[in-house]
Each structure stands twice: as C-alpha cells, then as structure tokens.
Amino acid sequence: MARRTDLSSGAGRTLVFVYGVFAAAATARSVFQLATEAERAPLAYGLSLLAAVVYVVATASLLRGGARAWRVAVAACSVELVGVVVVGALSLARTDLFPEPTVWSHFGQGYGFVPLVLPVLGLLWLRRTRPGPS
C-alpha cells in the first residue's frame, strides 16, 4: 500500500498558508460584493465568487492530502491559472466588462501579483508530490 500523499508539510505548509489567506480574503470579498451591490457588476462579482471557491477547494485538498485530493488540487490550481490569465487579459482588453475589479483583474495586480504566481507554485509543488501507483 502506498504511503498517503502528504501535501501540507515542508514547502506545502507555506503554500497552504497563502492559499488559506486567499481563500478567506476572496470569500469575504465576494460575499461583501454580492451582498451590497450585486447588480453593479455581475460578471466581475461572479468571477470573484468563482475565484473564492477555487481557493477554498485548493486549500482544503492540500490540507487533506492523499491521491484523490492531489487530483482535485491539480484541477483547482489549473482552473486558477487559466482564470487569472484569461480574466487578467480580459480586464485589460475589455474594461467595460469590469467596472469593478476582481481578485484576478490585471493579473492580480491589486494583490501584488500573488494570484498569478500562486497557481504556478502550486502546480510545481504538486508535480513534486505526485502520488505513486498504489
């Protein structure tokens, strides 16, 4: 039987902390936006909510560990990377679609570009911790 894949120690421990911070921040932000002014920028706020869900899923699967959580984490980090690149490009090209910023606008500039770097670090970490055949 293969050893259970541990995703939250070593470099994974620092990664979990950053993912946790973004999960909390993005969730709080999207709940706040949707509760106070949902109709003002439905696309931007919908994307904020999507970002929040992705961060929560990534944090939870890194904490959980194991082969299945590993696959979920790969999916979450991939969605996150595609999301930040697509939303980042769209927010520059189609400013009319984004009257209000999201976590991923301008490639995460409002958050020190951490949203752009984080999925890359996440995928690198997951490549190193790929579970062996069980």
Partner: peptide
C-alpha cells in the same frame, strides 16, 4: 492572521515553519 500563522508554523519547526511566520 498572526495567531493562525503562529500555530500553523509551530506544527513544523523547520524552514517551512519559519516561512509561514514570514508570510
């Protein structure tokens, strides 16, 4: 932020734990 970081760091007294305090 700091209490969560401190406890998460204390669980692993290594370079990674130090990194968590930095973050």
């Amino acid at each position: 932020a700091l209490p969560i970081g401190a406890f998460w760091s204390l669980a692993e007294r290594s370079r990674a734990g130090t990194g968590v305090v930095l973050l």
